[in-house]
Computed example of a mutant assay.
Amino acid sequence: MTSRVLRATAPMPADDVIERLGDEPAFPAYAGDLLSVSDAGGGLRAWVLAFRGGTAAWVQRSRRTEPYRIEFEQVHGDFRHLKGAWTVAGVPGGCEIAYEVGYSTSVPHLAGAIDSAAGRVLIRAAHQIMSAVAGPVRVTAGGHFLSDLPEPRDAVR
C-alpha cells in the first residue's frame, strides 16, 4: 500500500476546521479534480475523482473517531484499498491540519506509475480542500507531492 501525508498550518481555529472537514458533499466546490461526493445511503458517500482522462470512483465510510480526527475508508470502488484520516490540532495563531491517505490501485503491474499519479491527485485535492475550509494554508510537510501535475482539467466537468 502506498501512503501520502500532507500537513499545513492555517490561521483558523481547530474547532471550525474540523467541522468544515466533516461536510464532504461541499468538497467538489473546493477541489478541481473532485467531480462529486454524494450520499450513498447507510452513512456512506460516493466519490468521483477525475483521473488520467477518466474517473476513479468509490464509496467510503467516514467517521469522527476523536474530537479532532475524521477517519475514512473505502467500502468498495476502483481502489484495491483506500483509507486515511483528517486530523486537526490547535496551535498558536490557528491550527495544524494533516491529511493522511493509504491506498493501492487495482492494476498491480502498473502500480509504480498509477499509484504515484493517484497519490498526487489525492494530495492536490486535499490541499485545495484545506485551503478552502481553513483560509490560506502554509504547507509544512508533503509539499513535494503537489508538483509535477498539470492543473485540474476544466473540460471534463
Rank of each mutant, 00 (worst) to 15 (best):
V121R: 09
E100L: 05
G43Q: 03
R52I: 09
L21A: 05
F79C: 03
T105N: 04
I18Q: 03
H144I: 04
R4I: 15
V59C: 02
R7S: 10
L49M: 13
D78S: 03
L44G: 03
G135C: 11
A126F: 13
L82H: 08
G42V: 06
G143C: 08
T140W: 11
A26E: 11
P108I: 12
D23W: 06
T105L: 12
G93Q: 12
I18K: 02
T140M: 12
S36C: 01
A26R: 11
R69H: 02
T2N: 10
A31N: 04
T105Y: 03
G102P: 00
V5C: 08
A14G: 03
I97K: 01
E24L: 10
A57V: 07
R153P: 00
G84V: 03
G32A: 09
V133C: 04
E24Q: 07
V133D: 04
I70Q: 05
P28T: 07
F51Q: 06
E73I: 04
V88T: 11
L122M: 15
D16G: 00
T55G: 02
H127E: 13
W47K: 02
A26N: 08
E96F: 06
I70Y: 10
P152Y: 07
V156H: 09
L122Q: 02
D16Y: 08
R63E: 15
E19Y: 08
V37G: 02
I18N: 01
V17W: 07
R69N: 02
V121A: 05
I129H: 04
A10S: 13
V75C: 01
Q60S: 03
R20V: 05
A118V: 15
H81L: 14
A31S: 06
G41L: 11
D78N: 10
E24K: 07
A26S: 04
S36Q: 00
M12Y: 12
V17Q: 06
A118Q: 11
H109A: 15
P92K: 08
Y30M: 14
A40L: 09
R7C: 08
F51P: 01
T65D: 01
A29W: 05
R63N: 07
G143S: 10
T87G: 00
T105D: 02
A111G: 01
T9F: 09
P11I: 09
V156F: 14
D78G: 02
A46V: 00
A111Q: 14
T140V: 13
D23K: 13
G32K: 06
